[in-house]
Simulated assay, not measured.
Amino acid sequence: MYRSLFPRDLFAEMDRLQREMQQAFDLSPSIRGLGRGGFPALNVGGTPQTVEIYAFAPGIDPATLEVQLDRGLLTIAGERKSLLPEDDSPSTVHIHERFAGSFRRVLTLPEDADSDAVDAKYRDGILHITIQRRASAQPRRIAIQ
């Protein structure tokens, strides 16, 4: 009944160009967390007692992960090996969306984070880092006399 003035391919092309521009200038985060320097994707939050960091890094050998805490900076580094065929293989890859290679993420921690009370666990592709807050920074109830 009604015809569109623009074919659907034009809108698809505009959408593709917009995504490429955002990736080129890193204007907005990607839903996959794969923006420039964005692997592994992170969730950072906390409770009054802890700072909680979740790094989503599937397919990585935990022995290759390196977590360092130095002067309030937390560094997560490692490498994910490529599962693509070797260059001399006769196979062809049509789509390659999975990140492979070395990565490094650096986070600034809050001042009340206790660098002596850090726990890191890797399970099911998720690195979970828990950092205790200093006892002096904990909320406490003051008794009124």
Rank of each mutant, 00 (worst) to 15 (best):
D112L: 04
V67C: 08
A100P: 07
E79L: 09
Y54R: 15
G78I: 05
A63L: 13
L42G: 01
K81P: 00
R133K: 14
D61W: 00
A77P: 00
K81I: 01
G35P: 12
E52T: 13
R19Y: 14
S30C: 05
E13F: 13
P48C: 02
P29D: 11
R105F: 08
Q23E: 15
I76Q: 00
D87E: 10
I129G: 01
G33V: 08
S91K: 13
D124K: 11
L34A: 03
L42S: 06
T130G: 10
V44D: 07
P110M: 03
Q132P: 07
R105K: 05
M14H: 11
E20V: 14
A57W: 01
E111F: 09
L27A: 11
V118I: 02
S28C: 10
D70L: 11
D112Y: 01
Q49G: 09
N43L: 10
L69E: 05
D88N: 13
K121Q: 08
I76K: 04
L74R: 05
Q22W: 14
S28D: 12
F99M: 07
T47H: 10
F39Q: 09
D88E: 14
G59S: 08
R36Q: 06
L69R: 11
F99C: 04
S136T: 14
D87F: 00
Q23G: 14
R105I: 01
M21I: 15
S136F: 10
E79V: 06
L83Y: 07
V51R: 06
M14F: 15
A24R: 15
Q18G: 04
H94Q: 13
D26S: 14
Q138F: 10
T47D: 12
A77L: 00
D61Q: 11
G72W: 02
F25C: 15
S91G: 08
I60M: 02
R71E: 11
F25W: 14
I131R: 02
L69Y: 02
S28P: 02
K81R: 03
E111T: 11
A137P: 02
T50I: 02
R80T: 05
F99A: 06
S82P: 09
T130R: 08
L65Y: 12
P40R: 08
T47L: 04
S28I: 13
N43V: 07
R105W: 01
R104C: 12
I60W: 03
M21Y: 13
P58V: 03
F56V: 12
I126K: 09
H128M: 04
A55F: 05
I95D: 03
Q68P: 00
L127E: 07
D26W: 00
H94E: 07
F25G: 14
S91L: 14
G59H: 09
P29L: 07
F39T: 02
I126P: 02
G45A: 00
Q68T: 15
Q22V: 15
R80N: 04
F25P: 07
P58Y: 01
R104V: 12
P110A: 11
E66D: 14
A77W: 10
R32G: 09
F103T: 07
V51S: 00
L27P: 13
G59A: 05
I95Y: 04
D15Y: 10
D61S: 14
M14I: 13
A100S: 12
T75N: 01
D26K: 12
A120K: 07
L109D: 03
Q132L: 07
T130V: 12
